[in-house]
Design a binder for these strands. Structure first.
Lengths: 229, 229
DNA sequence: TGCATTTTGGAACGGTTATTCTATAATGAA
DNA sequence: TTCATTATAGAATAACCGTTCCAAAATGCA
């Protein structure tokens, strides 16, 4: 029927996403995209009507790949409080170049949030999604007695999504890692680290009593963790 | 001797700062600057060697005007804990267009932090300055018993500068004000509101005992405050 | 009143931008 | 093999970018 495409569409989109991630929307030229994706100008415009459409598609791709991967990691660890702790501890221990690159959503929120309502809504939705995952896990954490008395899961979740954005900004200018560690330490101060045995033994009771007697593990030193990918 | 300037230099810089603030570095053209400042192209290049130099001067101007004003407000309120509380409460109650504009430092950190080391260092320094003001006031707050037991002023200060950046990002995409209120509520949870009489009566004792007996004002509803300018 | 000096307004320049157009290449079906 | 259809490569376009240049205007001093 017709000549087949010489490029893989999702591979092309992944490359485009990376370029936008590294250089921003305005900072990325069509020439850059042609170079990094290896796809010709004409083919780019065949796949997307204009640069902005490709950018929006890149953000959607980022949601599916990066954001959902983060969500998965938040849901994979037990107990819930440790999942949230680990998420932030890994975040600030990421390698410098990873920290410098920041987050496509954060970068785009600042660059385009004021002038592009559709992009703003997309990003707002992503922030809300992550906030809700934080919240779900914090509700769990509260159930098993991992939250300090008086801590409200929803309010803390909203702090955490804000801190996540803040760290993305700070690390963009190469902020001191020690300072960022302190920031997450403070942000996580309402979440108790559950020593495994304490968690296991308290679990059943906690489910009904609302909070468990906690072991004296609250001030335990955060152990060295593998950096985020 | 020679023809006098037809424009006011600092007024011109203030205008330029506002344009960069609203539109970013890349988003601002020389034409924009000529239009908004009313100063001719040639005169702009007479005052600054290039666009970037004018931008750096604009950031310095922002530090002197906006950042120092924030510092002044943080230092003007007593007791210290209330100063910090009020700062954040006013921040999230600012009018929508003010929130949308965000902060020139935050915006520039994200836009240029990775590619311009000098700008990055300038912004890093400003962040540190605000962090240190937070810290100084939190040390005071601890002295008068306004900090919950176990809260470390430095670590909390580092959370607060991070939360400030986070709120700048969130508000850039029009995040829900209620969510931002929750975030600062959580961030400030370690700072007790001092009822005036309790502060006055405890002050002398607190100075030496390290912390005062606090009144039962901790959960008092935050009162309506004037929005930030 | 000129002269030296600086600002001013705007044209001009070379480069880059996003986008469109065109001619050629490559394919599957007839 | 021939044709219809689509992808490809790259030239062309028009607008805009930051920056430079230049002639005219405006001032204080001699």
């Amino acid at each position: 029927m017709a000549r087949p495409k010489a490029y893989d569409e999702t591979a092309m989109l992944d490359r485009a996403m990376e370029v936008f991630w590294a250089r921003g929307f305005d900072g990325t030229s069509i020439q850059n995209l042609v170079g990094k994706t290896g796809v010709n100008r004409g083919s780019l415009y065949g796949a997307y009507p204009d640069k902005r459409a490709l950018f929006v598609a890149s953000i959607r791709r980022y949601l599916d790949l990066v954001v959902e991967d983060n969500v998965r990691r938040l849901l994979a660890v037990e107990p819930a409080g440790d999942a949230v702790r680990q998420f932030f501890l890994q975040l600030v221990e990421a390698p410098p170049e990873r920290l410098r690159r920041g987050c496509l959503l954060t970068n785009s929120a600042v660059e385009l949030g004021m002038e592009d309502a559709q992009v703003a809504a997309l990003i707002r939705g992503a922030f809300r999604r992550v906030e809700q995952v934080f919240c779900a896990r914090l509700v769990e954490a509260k159930r098993v007695g991992q939250l300090t008395d008086g801590v409200q899961p929803e309010a803390l979740a909203r702090l955490l999504i804000t801190v996540l954005q803040g760290i993305r900004v700070m690390s963009r200018v190469g902020a001191d890692r020690v300072a960022m560690r302190d920031a997450v330490k403070s942000a996580l101060s309402g979440i108790k680290t559950a020593a495994t045995h304490a968690y296991a033994s308290d679990r059943g009771a906690a489910r009904h009593s609302g909070h468990s007697k906690r072991g004296r593990t609250r001030r335990a030193r955060a152990k060295q963790m593998a950096p985020a990918r």
